[in-house]
């Protein structure tokens, strides 16, 4: 039963996501003006942002671990969590744009949160370009770890402080009805929290798979070098 000890959270993720897809699409939702049935995007769009932030946090944690210990495996961890986080960010942005098309009338309406997330993605794309421009493995790991921590610390004011200084179109901001206001029957909340957990676990799962592939590839390369 050792595999159960290692795999229980993967099973949990699959179960939670099945529940989130079925429950999110079928369970009754409060009927609200403008939002209507699009409120169901809550279970797919918002968890992407939660997942992205959590994955970036894990990535920063490993970047700091790398700077402290200088062990290259932490660099592999860090970059793969970042890459998975970028995927979550892109999906979150696309799902948000589709939703905005139906509720705000436009794909992109210059909402501070939209702009903030676009800039956040730019930061991490720049991170990937920076990685590409360095050849030496140790130096690449060190320089990108420094940029990772620096960028993450500047991302925080971007995502959490600036949107609060101006009004946002997002539900719960600037006089728009928020999560709590339409959460009367708590059906949404029942699915939403589990969906966040499920998507985040899926993200961690994806990242660990990629990490294992990278480490195996490195070992194969080392062996080939040793043979030749």
């Amino acid at each position: 039963m050792t595999w159960m000890k290692q795999a229980w959270w993967k099973i949990l993720s699959v179960v939670l996501l099945c529940y989130a897809v079925v429950g999110g699409l079928l369970l009754p939702v409060p009927a609200l003006p403008i939002l209507n049935e699009t409120i169901r995007v809550l279970h797919f769009h918002v968890p992407m942002w939660f997942g992205m932030i959590i994955l970036f946090m894990i990535s920063v944690y490993y970047a700091i671990q790398f700077l402290r210990t200088n062990e290259l495996k932490y660099d592999v961890y860090s970059v793969n969590f970042t890459k998975t986080g970028i995927w979550f960010g892109v999906l979150g942005m696309l799902s948000g744009m589709i939703w905005a098309k139906f509720t705000w009338g436009e794909m992109w309406s210059g909402d501070p949160k939209q702009n903030g997330s676009a800039i956040a993605l730019l930061i991490y794309f720049a991170y990937l370009v920076l990685r590409g421009s360095l050849n030496d493995q140790n130096q690449r790991a060190r320089v990108t770890a420094v940029y990772n921590v620096f960028a993450f610390a500047t991302l925080i004011p971007l995502i959490f402080i600036l949107p609060r200084l101006t009004d946002s179109l997002h539900p719960g901001n600037g006089g728009n009805p928020g999560f709590n206001a339409y959460d009367l029957d708590s059906n949404l909340r029942k699915v939403f929290y589990l969906a966040v957990l499920g998507w985040t676990l899926l993200g961690v799962w994806l990242a660990t798979l990629k990490i294992r592939i990278d480490i195996i590839n490195e070992k194969i390369e080392d062996k080939e070098l040793a043979i030749s």
């Binding site: 800039i119 956040a120 730019l122 930061i123 794309f125 720049a126 370009v129 920076l130 940029y147 620096f150 960028a151 500047t154 004011p157 971007l158 402080i161 600036l162």
Partner: peptide, 10 residues
């Protein structure tokens, strides 16, 4: 430029 633009936006 690409490293600094997003960071300097706030």
């Amino acid at each position: 430029a690409i490293l600094s633009f997003p960071i300097i936006v706030p």
